[in-house]
Structure formats: structure tokens, C-alpha cells
Computed example of a mutant assay.
Amino acid sequence: MDFMIAAAIAALLNIGLLGTIIVIYVQNTRLVQSYFTYGLITVASAFMVQNIVIVIFWFNLYTAGPAIKTIVDAAAPYLFVINLAQTVGLAVMVWINT
């Protein structure tokens, strides 16, 4: 199994889940205008940026050349576990908010 591809898929899934969460929070902001709801939108947006940067960063590293590919392949399982944990957490948040 190529952990880098699995990590990228998890990061892309996270982007979709975060998009759903942001839409839900923006709809909630129309009903409950508070610093808390604005904070939720800000945090979800920051996580969205993080996942976009992760996908771009790791794609650039993975395609940089054979010398760095070994290092990227060694780090890929850890990135996959981190992204998978985030996917589970975000899925729970979507489930709770819908």
C-alpha cells in the first residue's frame, strides 16, 4: 500500500468534510451570531488551509526527485495516520452537526 496516496486521499476527504462543516457553521451564524460561531468558522477554515497546504507540499516533495523520495516514503505512514485521525474527528463533527 502506498501510504502517500492514502494520506493524500485522506487529506482530500478532510477538505471535503471541512467544506461541509464550514457551510453548516455559516448557516448557524445566520441564526446565532456570536463570537463562538465565528470562532468555529475561523478554526475550520484554518484546518482547511492546513489540508490544502499538506496536499500541495507533499505532492511537491514526492515529485522532487529520487533522492528525496526515500525520505518522503519513510514519513508517509506517519502522515497517513495523522490525516486518518483528523478524518475520523471531522466525520464525527459532521455527524454531530447534521
Rank of each mutant, 00 (worst) to 15 (best):
T29A: 08
T29I: 11
R30N: 08
R30W: 05
L31R: 03
L31W: 01
L31P: 00
L31C: 04
V32L: 10
V32S: 07
Q33Y: 06
Q33N: 12
S34C: 10
Y35M: 08
Y35S: 05
Y35Q: 07
Y35A: 04
Y35I: 04
Y35N: 13
F36K: 07
F36Q: 02
F36I: 04
F36G: 02
F36H: 09
F36V: 12
T37V: 11
T37N: 04
T37L: 11
T37H: 06
T37G: 13
Y38T: 13
Y38C: 12
Y38F: 05
Y38G: 15
G39L: 11
G39I: 14
G39D: 02
G39H: 05
G39E: 02
L40F: 03
L40H: 02
L40M: 09
L40I: 00
L40Q: 14
L40V: 12
I41H: 01
I41V: 12
I41A: 02
I41F: 00
T42E: 08
T42P: 00
T42L: 15
T42H: 07
V43Y: 06
V43S: 13
A44P: 00
A44E: 10
A44M: 07
A44C: 09
A44H: 03
S45A: 15
S45M: 06
S45P: 05
S45C: 04
S45N: 01
A46H: 04
A46D: 02
A46Q: 04
F47H: 06
F47C: 08
F47V: 00
F47N: 02
M48V: 01
M48L: 13
M48N: 00
M48C: 11
V49M: 03
Q50F: 08
Q50S: 09
Q50E: 09
N51A: 12
I52E: 06
I52W: 06
I52D: 10
V53S: 15
V53W: 07
I54H: 11
I54N: 15
I54P: 04
I54D: 14
I54S: 07
V55L: 08
I56E: 02
I56V: 14
I56A: 14
I56S: 05
I56D: 15
F57G: 10
F57M: 09
F57V: 07
F57Y: 08
W58C: 06
W58F: 10
W58D: 06
W58T: 14
W58S: 13
W58N: 12
F59Q: 14
F59E: 10
N60L: 15
N60S: 09
N60V: 14
N60F: 15
N60T: 05
L61K: 09
L61N: 04
L61G: 03
L61W: 10
Y62P: 01
Y62H: 13
Y62M: 01
Y62S: 13
Y62K: 11
